[in-house]
Simulated scan of single mutants.
Amino acid sequence: MKKFAFLAALMAATAVGAAHAEERRITVSAAGTVLAEPDMATITLGVTNENAQAAAAMKATSDAVSQILARLDQMGIDARDVQTRDLSLSPVWAGRGNQAGERPEISGFSASNRVFVRVRDLTQLGAVMDAVIQDGANDFGGLSFGIQDPKPLEAEARAKAVAEATAKAEQLAQAATVTLGPVQQISEQVGGIRPAAQMREFATADAGGIPVAGGEVSVSVNVTMEFGISQ
């Protein structure tokens, strides 16, 4: 019985020691950000038409989109950079919400076709937007700038984040009068490409096109690092 009690006490002491050892860690988080000029833009554009006849509404929309796609091809936009994102046909109701209690009726139809376009030559961006509007685009769902190959920028941002996290850990160890040990664990989260908070003028429009400024985009990587404590 005494032997059993001794073994139980030894195991408990070992567990406490292991837990204490596991607690001897310094965990820090840091972010690395790199700014760069964009070299690509994406546009979501569309065509919407209404008509009393569903077929007529869809035909008008399809004809305009066909003309837009042909124009984009003429301007050198690769087929892989053009994709239909949404095609819809819905009724247009009349008499909804009236006070007389009359039943709403379908007065026509609305046909819509939305297209995603990637522009890899930013000097064409203003001219492309101007051209598709002339060809019938009447619905723009957004414009965003990006980087075609973000991996080198991500690597630079990752190195900055690791350096910042290591510096933080060293400061904490010095303040706590302990010796910083090796890295025990590291994880990262890539923040993606976003518009920079402070944007710089970057003209992208040709003469006669819609004026557009690309500014800068930021690429961010967040890391969490866990260091051991040597003593």
Rank of each mutant, 00 (worst) to 15 (best):
A31H: 10
I193E: 02
F6T: 14
G142H: 02
G95W: 03
A13G: 06
D86Q: 15
A173I: 03
E216N: 10
R85C: 03
R71A: 10
E22Q: 11
I133S: 10
N113H: 12
G191Y: 13
A15T: 05
A31L: 15
Q174P: 05
A60V: 06
L180V: 00
V28G: 00
E156C: 01
A13T: 13
G95F: 09
T123N: 11
N113K: 12
G141W: 08
V65D: 00
Q99G: 12
A55T: 07
A56I: 08
V190S: 15
I133C: 04
A111G: 11
P195R: 07
T177N: 12
V217P: 00
E226W: 11
A18L: 07
I43W: 08
A100Q: 08
T224M: 08
A31W: 14
L72Q: 03
A100L: 14
R103S: 15
G136S: 02
L180M: 01
A159Q: 13
A159P: 01
G181E: 01
A173F: 10
A196G: 10
A52K: 15
R24N: 12
A94K: 13
S62C: 04
K160M: 06
I77W: 05
A161E: 02
T27E: 09
G215T: 06
G97Q: 07
T123V: 09
D81M: 07
G32L: 05
G17V: 06
A155R: 11
A70W: 09
F145R: 03
L69P: 08
A131G: 06
D81W: 01
N113Q: 15
E226R: 11
M199G: 11
A157S: 08
F109M: 06
A94N: 15
T84M: 12
S144Y: 04
I186F: 11
G142C: 00
Q171R: 07
A173D: 00
P91C: 01
N222W: 08
V162N: 09
L72M: 10
D139K: 01
V92C: 11
I43S: 08
P150S: 02
D39S: 11
I229S: 05
A205N: 11
M75T: 03
T166L: 10
V223K: 01
S88W: 09
L10K: 06
K168N: 10
K3R: 14
T179H: 04
K59Y: 12
S88K: 12
A41N: 03
P150T: 04
G215R: 01
S62I: 05
S110A: 15
A203S: 14
S218Q: 13
A15Y: 06
Q198G: 13
R200A: 11
A64V: 05
P38I: 04
D63E: 05
S187W: 02
G141H: 12
A157D: 06
P150W: 01
A21N: 13
Q231D: 14
M75I: 06
R25H: 07
P38T: 00
K151T: 15
G191L: 14
A137M: 10
A165M: 03
D130C: 07
A60Q: 13
A57I: 00
L69R: 11
P211W: 06
D135L: 12
Q67A: 15
M129C: 11
E170F: 10
P152M: 07
G228L: 00
A169T: 00
A205E: 05
G17K: 03
K151E: 15
V183A: 05
T61H: 00
G228R: 01
G126W: 00
E164A: 15
S112A: 15
I186Q: 13
